[in-house]
Simulated assay, not measured.
Amino acid sequence: MIRGMRGATTVSSNSEEAIFSASEELFAKLIEENQIQPDSVASVFISTTEDIDAAFPAKALRELPGWSYVPVMCMREMPVPNSLKLCVRVMMHVNTNVAQENIVHIYLRGAKVLRPDLNNSPAL
């Protein structure tokens, strides 16, 4: 079974350092909370809002041990008026036997407003 594991965070500024730092934190918590092994991941989609263009968040994932060969794609989020700014979102497609209701989705920093109903993880 492939399950989607979601998460999002915001960055403090449109700088390479801020993008890598926030993205690495998001990916690490999503991986830890769901005990994800790189070889169980089918693909990863990462989107950013239009105000993020100083670096690819995927680079932060690629630097984690074992993630070199996982298919990762960055894309642009829809520019909806009054939507959250400086936001990085992720969707990991993971082969798992974990039930849907037991998947831990991670929303950090300013992105907690996107899914307040899911902000009950111990990592948050």
Score class of each variant (00 low, 15 high):
G7N: 10
S12Q: 13
A22I: 09
T10P: 00
L84C: 09
V90C: 12
L64V: 08
K29V: 13
G66M: 02
N119D: 03
K29R: 13
P57H: 07
L118R: 05
W67K: 02
T49N: 10
I31S: 14
S83P: 12
E50I: 03
E101I: 04
N102L: 01
F20Q: 07
Y107R: 04
N14H: 13
S12T: 13
A54N: 02
S40T: 12
P122V: 08
A99F: 00
M5P: 14
P122D: 12
P65K: 04
S13C: 14
N97P: 15
R62C: 03
A58D: 09
F27H: 11
E17H: 07
S121E: 09
R6W: 15
M75E: 09
R62P: 01
P65D: 09
I36Y: 09
S13T: 15
S121V: 06
H93I: 14
S13Y: 12
L114D: 02
D39N: 14
P57C: 07
S47W: 02
D39R: 07
N102T: 01
R3E: 12
L61Q: 03
I36G: 06
A123F: 09
L84F: 10
W67C: 10
A55D: 04
L124Y: 05
V72L: 02
M91L: 15
V98W: 00
A123Y: 08
S23Q: 05
R109P: 00
T49Y: 06
L118M: 08
I2D: 14
A60L: 04
K85S: 04
A111Y: 04
E77P: 10
M91A: 15
L26A: 08
P116H: 01
I52S: 01
A55H: 06
N14K: 12
L61M: 02
C74T: 06
N82G: 12
S13H: 14
G66D: 02
D117P: 01
P57R: 10
A99T: 08
N119A: 06
V41R: 00
G4H: 14
V88R: 03
V113F: 06
T49G: 07
P81W: 07
P71E: 10
G66R: 00
R109C: 03
L86C: 08
N34W: 00
I2K: 10
S12N: 14
V80G: 13
E101A: 06
I106K: 00
C74W: 02
I46C: 08
N102M: 00
